[in-house]
């Protein structure tokens, strides 16, 4: 597959005796939006965190453009600059204002000039509708605003892949739409995205590929159409039914 960016093969992860991920295999291709769904504790977030090495996999292989990112000599910081992450709890830098939050990675990691970084940051902040708040500190903003800045911060790094770890789970319902709108706009630009979410309607709407995880394994995967309208496995059907009843 020539346009494959990331490949996960036979990935295992244990915390002590507790095995969280078992034999995970997954490919992510350029321009694709991959959504991982599943109940809490099924290992979705752990898989995402293994992909950018916030967790060290116990076994298996992850390749980025064919290169093994678990090799001892692999340059992790350069890799992480290319694989962005948006966190459930935003994790904005509290000592910096909104604009600086979006600039600091560009100037320190990508060595962009402050002018270029500023221009990029302002452009991304505008896309998420946060331009008026460039001088604000994170503590002065609401959750939805913070998450849109989290997205702008990640996109400012011009990543090849952007990982979203339950980006709307910590938000009040009325703020969720702002964030989802920003993500939808991003997906339309052709950015490769891997998304862990409980927003089923949204996942169905934007995903090219959907992965259903249960108890540390990939129970079923397929196109959004296949998973959401004709799920094959009983576990997938039970899970989706519970969500649709809400």
């Amino acid at each position: 597959m020539t346009d494959e960016i990331l490949a996960v093969t036979h990935l295992e992860k244990s915390f002590g005796d507790h095995q969280v991920l078992k034999d995970i295999n997954l490919q992510i291709r350029r321009g694709e939006v991959v959504t991982i769904i599943g109940s809490s504790g099924s290992g979705k977030s752990t898989l995402l965190r293994c992909i950018n090495l916030l967790e060290q996999p116990t076994q298996g292989e992850i390749t980025f453009h064919g290169e093994n990112i678990l090799a001892p000599k692999f340059d992790i910081t350069t890799y992480r600059a290319k694989v962005g992450m948006v966190f459930q709890s935003f994790n904005l830098f509290n000592n910096l204002n909104v604009l600086q939050n979006c600039m600091v990675g560009q100037t320190t990691v990508l060595n962009r000039t402050p002018e270029a970084a500023r221009e990029m940051a302002l452009a991304q902040l505008e896309k998420v509708g946060m331009t008026p708040y460039v001088n604000a500190k994170p503590s002065q903003l609401s959750g939805g605003q913070k998450q849109r800045i989290g997205i702008a911060r990640a996109v400012s790094m011009s990543p090849e892949v952007l990982l979203f770890d339950e980006p709307t789970s910590a938000l009040d319902p009325e703020m969720v739409d702002d964030v989802l709108d920003s993500m939808r706009a991003l997906a339309h630009t052709g950015l490769t995205m891997v998304l862990v979410t409980h927003e089923m309607a949204f996942a169905r709407d934007i995903s090219d590929h959907v992965v259903f995880m249960d108890q540390g394994v990939i129970a079923e995967e397929g196109s959004a159409e296949e998973i959401f309208t004709r799920p094959q496995k009983p576990r997938t059907q039970t899970f989706l039914k519970r969500y649709l009843q809400r």
Partner: peptide
């Protein structure tokens, strides 16, 4: 300083020293 900010800085590709210094 909450561990989330360490993670966010690492996720941007910062080294430990850069994370300490800037954040």
């Amino acid at each position: 300083v909450d561990s989330g900010q360490f993670e966010a800085a690492h996720a941007l590709g910062m080294t430990h020293l850069q994370t300490m210094n800037k954040i």
